[in-house]
Structure formats: structure tokens, C-alpha cells
Design a protein around this nucleic acid. Structure first.
Lengths: 243, 243
DNA sequence: ACCTGAACACCGTTCAAGT
DNA sequence: ACCTGAACACCGTTCAAGT
């Protein structure tokens, strides 16, 4: 039996391979290496040990292969990180597909992403790094579709969706950075930590930083998740302005 | 002549040093090493060779010292990158202090940051990495102050400023990623590049990506800077909604 | 105090060799 | 086709030794 022109991806390059097989397919072992399995293992490592924990040595040890084997399925570390982030985002987006009212749907998507990045900070860093990846496409589509449903005029839809997505990614990046910091310093007591920063702000030079001083008190009591949602609502309110 | 208790920063640790000097101060050579000079050299390298070009070897070669000398003035590479970004942002913010109408002032700050990050992509990546650094403080203060002037109710000022800053940082990060990509692939012809992506979007699966398909045409002709400003205006419109 | 530069530990990536 | 693992080039960081 012949398989004529099989397209085989090896890294980013593409080459033609002519494969000849008997009718009796050779069974793959359950634990055979594949891009999917590699990405899954990478996600596990990223979640437990953070970005600095993901090395090709750690990865190949966990997969019980040589480091070179990984390069057969994946071009380089950049592609590996991007694929890992894509996988996580894809899951979030399929879970966040709520039918319902479009404004609520946008909030659900936004919150889903927020929570996912809170759990997996490395995704946040990754998101603000790669631009036109499939993860971004899904987010853009999810948000943009609801804006259509909301009745936003067509000419305004692109800018509006772009604003929402940029905002989401901005918060994602900051959140990821915060989470990384929280891991480094042992910041077990969040409210004590916020109070320390608020106190610093309150002590800033009054002529150069009047706003920060005023806002210090609110900062000590604010909730990141609520503030994130407040921003989404602010942007939605601005979008509702366009007629 | 005595200098009693001089606080000397060495890396992040702080130690007390008692220094005795004669009235005749020993003149520093003009090219003596200092954190400021190191940061300046780092900025030069980052601008010309990008983030991957900044190594302690390259830096010490340019400064004609050993790599260890740099560690006397700077804790590690993270601190070095943060200090470099802070320096660039500080310049932008002092230039962007326009008096004028507050709404225009917010736009001026936003555009100043946008252009700076367009010139120095590495700053964008850095901004979404460190959270409560002095650069962020300045941006937050600049934006927040104008919101006060705009007459935004005090209880809404913190959330409003936070939304604007997050949006700015989000776009900054994406822009930085784009610029990095543009450098890797030789993307000299921007409009041709946009057209390629638009064509990809137009070919996406219609059931899963109706919005992206519709928006593809607009994407081919959009201007990043204008779209960024449109987002700022959208958020400002949302903020004006709060009474 | 401040600088030098060799040494250390560790990394991503390649590649001849195996099956 | 797919995997192995030693080898390569390069990195951030440390530190005994100099001035």
C-alpha cells in the first residue's frame, strides 16, 4: 500500500517524504514521542518550576529521551513556548464560550484569560511576546464576535476589538510579572505586601507624585481581578459611545 | 575632613562604609566606571543589537573592563535591563510633559511612549516584565494627574488610570514583539507584509473565524499608531461616562 | 573601594551515529 | 523516520587576586 505525497513538518522547514508501508501498519507505542506529548510535558514543567525550569535537559529527562529527539518535533525553544501558550489559551477559550448576552460573554472571556494567567504566569509573558499566533487569533475572534452581536457599527469593530485585546494582554503581562515577583520574594501575605507598597507611595515627593500619594490608600485595598473587570467595563462603555 | 556614615549600595545589599578623605578630593577620571555609564552603554548596545546582543562580555568589552567590574555597580542582568528601561522612559516622560488641555496631554503621553517603544522595542518587552518600577510610577502619575484635571470623580480615578496604563503597556508589549519579528524576518515592505497576513485571515475557516475574515480587509490598511490612539480615545470616552 | 579575568556551572543547539 | 547523547559555542555569575 502506498502513501503518495506525505507532507512532513520537521521544525519550521517543510519537506516532501515518500513513505512506503505494508498494509500491516506498525503500531506506535503509546509513549511514542510527538509534538503534542512534548508540549504537554513542557506545560507541566512550566507550571511547577516556572520559565527558568524549562530546559531541554529537564524536558528530555522527563520524556526519557535525548535532547536531540525533541528537536526532531520542535524547531527551537521559542516555538516550544509559543505552542505551550497556544495550548493553554485554546483550552481557556473553548471553556469560555458562553452563549448568553454578548456583554457578559466578553467579560467571561476576559475573566477566563485573567484566571488562566493567574494560574500559569508564564502564559502571560508569552502572550505579550508573540503577536499573530493562533492564541491571539482565538482571543481576537472571541471578543470581536461579541462586539458584532452587541451592535457595534462595522467600521468601529476592528479598533474596538483591538483595544479590548490589547488591554487584556497588558494586564496579562503585568499579572505575570507580579506572579513571578511573588514567587521570588516570599510574598505569602498579600495584604501586608500591598500595604508596604502603599506606604512607599504615600511617602513619595508631593510635587512630583501628587496622584500616587492620593491613590495609595485605594491601592492597599484594591483587588486585581475587580480592577481588571472595571477596566473592561470602562472600555465597553467607551465602545457603546460610538454610534 | 570626615564623611561620617556613607551609605554604599553594592548590588542590592546595603552596607555601611566609613570613608576618610583629605580635603583634596581625588579627582575621578572622566571615564571612571559608574552605574550611569554602564546603563548608558547597555542602552547603546540594546538599541543597535537588540536584547540578545546585550551580554556581559559585550558590555565589558565596550567599557574596556572585566565583566566582574560591572557586578560591582549592578546586581545582575535583571537590574541592568530594568535600569535601562527606566532611563529611557524617564526621558520620554519629561519630554511629554505638555501643559495644555488634559485630554490632549494624555494622548501626548501615550503617543510619546508608543513612539519611544517603536524606536526601542526592548523597552516594551521590559515594561510588561517589571511591575512597580519607577518607570511605571511616572507613567501612572502622568496619566492619573490628567484624569484629575479632567474632572473624573475621585473614586473612579484609580481604576481609570489603571485601565489606561494597562492598555498602553499591552500595546507596548505587542509592538515590541512585532518589531522583533520584523527584525528577524526581513520585513522591509510593511504593506506587503500586512497584505500577506490579511490574506491568511481571509482564508480562515468561516464557521470558527467569521470576525477575523470580515476584519481582514481593514487590517491590511490599518495604521498601528492610529489604532493605538483610537483605543486611547475609546477608553477616555468610557471614562467620561462615569459621573 | 574598585577592578581584573580566569573559572564554574549551565544553557540551547547541532550532528554523526545508531535503529 | 526517528532517536541518542556527546560535543560545541556561548552565557550569567563568582571570586581570588591585584591596585
Amino acid at each position: 500500500m502506498f502513501h503518495k505525497g506525505v507532507l512532513e513538518h520537521r521544525s519550521s522547514r517543510v519537506k516532501m517524504v515518500f513513505m512506503v508501508t505494508t498494509t500491516q501498519r506498525t503500531e506506535r507505542r503509546a509513549d511514542a514521542l510527538s509534538k503534542a506529548r512534548i508540549v504537554e510535558a513542557a506545560i507541566d514543567i512550566l507550571n511547577t518550576d516556572g520559565e527558568s525550569g524549562l530546559t531541554f535537559r529537564a524536558l528530555s529527562a522527563r520524556l526519557a529521551t535525548g535532547s536531540g529527539a525533541i528537536y526532531w518535533h520542535v524547531a527551537d525553544k521559542t516555538e516550544l513556548l509559543a505552542a505551550a501558550a497556544d495550548a493553554v489559551i485554546a483550552r481557556v477559550m473553548t471553556e469560555a464560550v458562553s452563549g448568553g448576552e454578548p456583554r457578559e460573554a466578553v467579560r467571561a472571556i476576559a475573566l477566563g484569560l485573567f484566571d488562566a494567567i493567574d494560574d500559569h504566569p508564564w502564559v502571560g509573558a508569552q502572550l505579550s511576546l508573540g503577536p499573530l499566533r493562533s492564541a491571539m487569533l482565538q482571543i481576537f475572534e472571541g471578543v470581536g464576535g461579541r462586539l458584532q452581536a452587541l451592535g457595534v457599527p462595522e467600521r468601529a469593530q476592528f479598533d474596538a476589538a483591538s483595544a479590548l485585546v490589547s488591554y487584556i494582554l497588558g494586564v496579562a503581562g503585568q499579572n505575570a510579572a507580579n506572579a513571578r515577583l511573588a514567587r521570588e520574594m516570599d510574598r505569602s501575605d498579600r495584604s501586608a505586601f500591598l500595604a508596604t507598597i502603599a506606604a512607599q507611595w504615600a511617602r513619595l515627593d508631593p510635587t512630583n507624585y501628587p496622584f500616587m500619594r492620593q491613590v495609595a490608600a485605594q491601592f492597599a485595598e484594591h483587588d486585581d481581578r475587580e480592577q481588571f473587570l472595571a477596566g473592561i467595563d470602562l472600555i465597553l462603555a467607551g465602545i457603546a459611545t460610538v454610534r
